[in-house]
């Protein structure tokens, strides 16, 4: 290894054009909305007794709201946070009323967080539908924790979880740099 500065390897996101970067406050706004909705799911889940049949469990109010949230997480995870409805809402209605962004980020990190949110809430919903007691509330509480920490404290789920996946051997060496 000789030379410094420009010769240094910059494996991630360095080639990202600036236009792709998003205002860091966008995903945090989305996480705040999601946190509140997840609390509503928990409240509905705690106050509604588990129904006897799968069909009745599908149409419980908490399950319906969580279904909508699973769909929103899927939207963010698979279409990218830039195309998420909260992202559009933020850009149209909220960002114009705020100061220009001080920080911009690659959408890869919040998109990864959406994927994790999707997996957690979808698992909880599926377990609820087969009749596991408490699955709805526990999954919503876990997703709430991540969304709330992101909204209120700027917590970056990808920064931690990704390394743990690598260490556990679940994420392997990239095939192409």
């Amino acid at each position: 290894m000789s030379g410094q500065g420009p010769a240094n390897a910059r494996p991630h996101a360095a080639m990202t054009p600036d236009a792709r970067l998003i205002d860091v406050r966008g995903p945090r706004f989305g996480a705040a909305v999601t946190s509140v909705l997840l609390l509503v799911v928990i409240l509905l889940g705690l106050t509604t007794p588990l129904s006897g049949t799968a069909l009745a469990r599908v149409i419980e109010p908490g399950a319906l709201l969580l279904t909508a949230l699973v769909a929103l997480f899927a939207w963010g995870a698979f279409a990218g946070v830039q195309r998420h409805p909260y992202g559009l809402l933020f850009r149209r209605l909220i960002a114009p009323r705020l100061n220009p962004p001080l920080e911009r980020e690659d959408p890869a990190a919040p998109t990864f967080a959406q994927l994790v949110g999707f997996l957690v809430t979808a698992t909880g919903l599926a377990l609820h539908l087969v009749g596991v007691p408490g699955a709805l509330v526990i999954a919503a509480a876990a997703a709430f924790l991540a969304a709330f920490l992101n909204a209120a404290f700027g917590y970056c789920l990808g920064c931690q979880l990704y390394v743990l996946l690598v260490r556990a051997g679940l994420v392997a060496r990239r095939s192409a740099a």
């Binding site: 991630h12 860091v24 980020e105 690659d106 919040p110 990864f112 990808g158 920064c159 990704y162 690598v166």
Partner: peptide, 9 residues
């Protein structure tokens, strides 16, 4: 760094 990490940037 990881590819899904804002603080890395």
């Amino acid at each position: 760094s990881s590819p899904v990490c804002s603080a890395c940037v």
